[in-house]
Design a protein around this nucleic acid. Sequence first.
RNA 1: GGCCCCAUCGUCUAACGGUUAGGACGUCGGGUUUUCAUCCCGAAAAUUUCUGGGUUCGAAUCCCAGUGGGGUCACCA
Length: 445
Amino acid sequence: MKIRTRFAPSPTGSMHIGNLRTAFYAYALAKHDKGDFVLRIEDTDKKREVEDGVEDIKDILGIFNIKWEELYVQSERLDLYKIAAEKLVNDGYAFYCECEAKNAKKEGFSLELRDPCRDKKLTSGAIKLRTPENEWITFTDYVLQKKVSWNTSVVSDATLLKTDGFPTYHLAVVVDDNDMNISHVLRGHDWMPSTPIHLLVYKYLGFKVPEIGHLTDIMDPEGGKLSKRKGSTSVRGLLEEGYLPEAIFNFVILLGWAPKDNRELYTLEEFVEFFDPKGFQKGNPVFNREKLDWFNGEYIRNLPEKDLNLKFQMANAKFGELEKEKQIAITKLLKERIKKISDVNDIAKFFWETPVVDKELFGENYKEHLESAIEVFEEIKDWNIENIGTFSLELCERKKFHRGDFFMDLRVAITGMKFTPPINDSILILGKEETLARLSRVVKN
RNA sequence: GGCCCCAUCGUCUAACGGUUAGGACGUCGGGUUUUCAUCCCGAAAAUUUCUGGGUUCGAAUCCCAGUGGGGUCACCA
């Protein structure tokens, strides 16, 4: 049978890194077997829905090259859920309830599993599941590869259809996954506790239960589930910070999944090719920024200069205003020494901004170094890298300057920083005039 | 608190019941280099696989308990 998976996000805010990972896994699981991957928008909570939420989801999937065969929107399928819910009532597996909706509990936890309207035989209101007493319900988790069981006595009379006519997740997933012929359900671990509800609904509706697997949660280094509070975990945020989609993808698929040979580098296509559900981890992984940085560096260095140049242009307007040749030259210098695209803002700033030079950074003989440099540079007729190099070296030789000290003073005077791209290449790009101007400015102050 | 899941270097992880428990990131040291970075080489790092029992000739691998971590208990998903 053909594998069909789905990614079922809610348009309730910016997409989280964990959600994206679920999409990658579901996509790879299907595509590895030439199956279908479908996108389903779960917009059944109108209160929490955000504007452009759906567009944002599609946009992000597009950035990561994830394509779907079919698209469904739950709010357009309300009849289906209503029919299913009413069927459950008619068959005695669900009941109407007119109680006031419970708010999300602020503190503590509710102990009432059974709803007071259970046996009132009402004919309108919300529809809730008539959970049976003391039955064992079991399924084999596709990710965990083990049986998990519950006694229905600890399962609540969950709401299936809300009074506004919208289904809750519990009803909608079951109806949709069945209707859309989903063969494998991959979802967050937080869904595990409500799985018995779904299992009951499957059973009462007479549907075949698909493979269901619960993925690990990505943890925060500080402890607890990764949250927006602690650092940037939204996909947008990471993208804006200067992480490449390829790096984010590669990093995130390896949090919670690993191949037998521990290979580290994967493109989307390669991940699909080598994907094996046996590689799913059971323990929660920790989000490790250093490793993401490493992946990003790898992908930045592998990027064609033309593409990297474009990324810099998008990241920094000032950079984009530079002459084309200068942009390319700077790109080459930056390529090997940045971790994030946004690093261009700091490390290359001196190219379009005269730096504020802190004299503390200079060595003892900096005045002599810089004054000599001005003299020598003025003599250079053809401002090219060979001349800059030989004239400088010759100067150090002649005046017995310590090379490292001389170049460091030059570096600080030109850039205002101690860690910079190669200084000769930098002043070549800056030009003779600007270089001289910066040097004399420092010497005069 | 009830229920459910999980447990190998700091982190991500590999290891037919039989390995000196392997790799990657990070860290440290060295080489290249006019800084930083890249690149190359090397090392430390798991008090031997959370603890305690058991099964077995033999356990990181199987079983049980404890401890620890995580999730969840809404007309939210």
